[in-house]
């Protein structure tokens, strides 16, 4: 059984059908890329899976749980974490705190403990901190040391993207959804990210589904590529298979003028 199974997923926004009867699976340990022209429903798909938008129809089964109707905070607890297309950090919080927030669903202490500070609370805080620093250490020296305490808003753009990934990782996901992780990065940084995504999958074996426009990254990391257009899957397969698919080219470039 696949880790994530999507069946007949449909979402309308006022007359526009953003996702249209979509079926999609992601097997455990896989890296799947979702590509498609702008407005194909890719980000909506992520919003539906993470519970930020409620689908009109269809089923999403993750790790044996039907997750349609659960709140986003419950879904991340089950093990689906995401990043956002337009980087959404907590700008006034420090780098470390940003990541520590993601441990919320793995920790339990409440207000009373926070005020009384028993040993169990201190232990949990220390663990949270460690987990956060570990997640940040994934990116080498970039987000560690003095950067722990700088506010997220003072980071460079690429570092903000990295921080977002670290934050998602810290929640201990089984499935990681990356929404255009390289948007705004230069070629060198993109190259680095290709290696990193593989490392994440291999070292902490999470399944990764990513949305991407940069074909270099798609080619570099994905074991399977899914192409969406108008909310439907129009092709699926290995990168080179998909890249030569007639319908995909059509979706990106438009239909060839028929000979008169």
């Amino acid at each position: 059984m696949a880790l994530l199974e999507i069946r007949g997923l449909t979402k309308d926004f006022g007359g526009v059908r953003a996702v249209d009867g979509l079926d999609l699976d992601a097997a455990e340990g896989e890296i799947v890329s979702v590509i498609g022209p702008n407005g194909a429903g890719k980000t909506t798909l992520f919003n539906l899976v993470t519970g930020m938008t409620r689908p009109d129809r269809g089923e999403i089964v993750f790790d044996g749980h039907g997750i349609v109707g659960l709140r986003p905070s419950q879904i991340i607890e089950l093990g689906i974490a995401r990043t956002f297309q337009n980087v959404r950090l907590f700008p006034e919080m420090s780098v470390r705190e940003n990541v520590m927030v993601a441990r919320h669903c793995r920790t339990r202490s409440g207000m009373l403990k926070a005020v009384l500070r028993p040993p169990s609370f201190r232990r949990e805080e220390a663990e949270t901190r460690e987990a956060a620093e570990r997640a940040l250490a994934f990116f080498g020296a970039r987000l560690v040391g003095w950067r722990f305490d700088t506010p997220a808003r003072s980071l460079s753009y690429a570092n903000r993207r990295r921080l977002e990934i670290a934050r998602a990782l810290a929640s201990g996901p089984k499935l990681l959804l990356l929404d255009e992780p390289t948007a705004g990065m230069n070629p060198h940084e993109t190259g680095e990210l290709i290696g990193l995504i593989r490392r994440i999958r291999d070292e902490i074996d999470v399944t990764i589904v990513l949305i991407e426009h940069d074909m270099r990254l798609v080619k570099g990391v994905s074991e399977r590529v899914v192409v969406l257009d108008y909310g439907q899957m129009i092709a699926e397969g290995r990168y080179d298979e998909v890249a030569s698919n007639e319908r995909v080219i059509e979706a990106y470039l438009g239909r060839k003028a028929s000979p008169a």
């Binding site: 659960l70 793995r106 949990e124």
Partner: peptide, 18 residues
Amino acid sequence: MARTNSLRRGPVAARRVR
């Protein structure tokens, strides 16, 4: 490897679902 593995699941696994 063991270090990074502990990233996966915290001390408390998902309990409440709905």
